[in-house]
Design a protein around this nucleic acid. Structure first.
Lengths: 333, 333
DNA sequence: GCATCAAATGCAAACGATTGCAAAAAGTAA
DNA sequence: TTACTTTTTGCAATCGTTTGCATTTGATGC
């Protein structure tokens, strides 16, 4: 069933049929309805590849999920799933398809693969990784792309992301308010977003008139396993005593909590804990986890909106999303 | 930069250029290398839409993630993310792209939208939902599709999935072994997979010479919130005392655990708990969560392999993946 | 009845690759 | 040299839409 067949059935030309199907007012209303009716009856659907070829548009956005470079594993934060879900829904809502890739396989030249070879009209990148060169390579191209992460002023590309610095500040101020004085920071500041949270940490510590101890900043990957190991291997010794933990993801926080439990250290009394993300499980673990909530739904929607604006050649600015401190048991003394 | 340009530069015809690029032995080796070199130098990439149109193949597989119909929310189990990640990687590995959708938006006619209109060569569906009609509608079409879920013998389509019945059996036998006698089942047996786990529950109970009490089967959706509420609203009263919980997902189990904690009910002593999935966090919550491990990596790989086999018109059979009981603190008395 | 104009339709050329088949070139044997 | 393979190349059609432009149709005015 092709457009030609429909045209034949409707006794019109291909051009008329084509226009009629897309409700072009150039075509007589009766003719339009006739053609549409016939198309419907025969369950005709426009061939996307042919249409894409002719129009030079794909109506597809590629979404790249940055993987953990070391482990080669998906950053399996439920957080990711949530934002992906929103993006998918928003894109379908605007008539776009979503092509999903991870950075794990093959160091694709994204520009060539997706844009030049016409697989997608634009790119949404989730996560900046550790200043990935692949992102920077895109800046000088005409590929429309948006990154979930932190705005980097020296680098000129559009980002959408949480106010990570504020998040770090809120988390640590809160811990300090609860009486914590030696707060471990679990995260890898090579990730731009994490770096911001670390700055927020420093802001809060400075504000309280305390001193930032570099020893308390412990490089930790985005997994529960790493959270557990960080505490085990680097903290709580006489050398580095702590009374609070700020983990840059809830997953990390859960791992840390686990270790504290095993050592019979009471939470929040001896050590208070706060995470980041507010994944749905945080409320439902025990003790429930205090955290900084990221507005993933708004983030996903915004990513898509800016992407579409960009495709329509509208001016587009990076956006900072507000975060919120959610106090739960793990930090309530 | 099109094929024609390259051909011109290489002083050959388009056909020769096309063949040369794909290393067709019909073309002289020298010519091939010449063309490839030129293409490389000019960073030429074949236009996918044109190629797709001509070859009538898209080299794309659409993946549909079934959403929670009621909440309209993504089943945000990390479990999903893991399997999606594997699928994405496997597909890229075999040169396919992955189109992702959720069932939330628009009740697409998948056959028309993806297959007829040539957006994808095949469909992988994650989750059966509650006997979704959209799946059944595909059976009579020529669309190649595979479902992650349980084989349904009356329905004739290919599935890949865990041995859910065995999983249920293992979980419940284990609890019984630990001395549990009244085990709550948290899950919604309208989901085919959950139904299987319920059958496994019954198997184990029967084997132990106990009686299956329908009161103990509590309809619960796939979220922590629901796990929490199920226990709160339906169990632990004098009416329905329990000493064990089998939750059909780790997320549910975490919610349930939370409620037990709040009620000062000790785990595993007063109530032992076991979940399903073995998401990465299960090991790192406290108490660590016993669970039934699904082999998501194998599952993802198998889904893709069968899909490709199907595309190559090879015979394809549904596959059952083994599951494994992981004993942790929450059930170790 | 004819000129004029607007509304509706159709022609034919793209879009950029792939491929069956024919033709040219190169190699071999007589 | 001719005849006959074998290897290598190129022609031209095709995939199924969309769209600029020309053409037809019908309406209107004089």
């Amino acid at each position: 069933m092709t457009l030609a067949d429909i045209a034949l059935l409707a006794n019109v030309s291909k051009s008329t049929a084509s226009r009629a199907l897309r409700n072009n007012p150039l075509i007589n209303k009766n003719t339009r309805e006739l053609v549409q009716e016939i198309a419907l009856k025969h369950n005709f659907k426009v061939n996307a590849t042919a249409s894409n070829l002719r129009t030079q548009k794909t109506n597809t956005i590629a979404v790249v999920v940055m993987f953990d470079q070391k482990s080669g594993q998906a950053i399996s934060d439920p957080f990711l799933m949530e934002i992906l879900g929103t993006i998918a829904d928003e894109l379908t809502h605007f008539g776009y398809d979503m092509l999903l890739t991870t950075t794990k396989t093959a160091t694709h030249d994204w520009y060539s693969y997706y844009y030049e070879s016409k697989r997608a009209d634009g790119l949404i990148i989730i996560g900046q990784g550790e200043h990935d060169q692949r992102i920077e390579a895109l800046i000088s191209t005409d590929l429309p792309f948006i990154v979930w992460g932190t705005e980097i002023h020296e680098k000129n590309y559009t980002t959408v992301g949480s106010d990570n610095r504020k998040g770090g500040y809120l988390a640590v101020s809160h811990l300090i308010e609860q009486g914590c004085r030696r707060i471990a920071f679990l995260g890898d500041i090579n990730h731009t977003e994490v770096e911001q949270r670390w700055l927020g940490y420093q802001d809060a510590v400075a504000e309280a008139g305390l001193v930032v101890e570099d020893k308390l900043q412990i490089k930790t990957d985005f997994t529960s396993v790493d959270g557990y190991q960080s505490l085990r291997d680097h903290c709580l010794s006489d050398d580095v005593p702590i009374d609070g933990v700020f983990a840059v993801s809830d997953a990390i926080a859960l791992g840390a909590t686990k270790y504290l439990f095993e050592q019979n250290i009471t939470i929040p009394k001896q050590v208070a804990v706060i995470g980041f993300d507010d994944i749905s499980m945080s409320e439902y673990c025990s003790p429930s986890l205090s955290t900084i909530r990221q507005n993933t739904a708004a983030g996903g929607r915004l990513l898509v909106k800016l992407m579409l604006d960009k495709l329509n050649h509208l001016p587009v600015d990076s956006q900072l999303l507000n975060v919120e401190m959610i106090q739960r048991q793990s930090s309530s003394r």
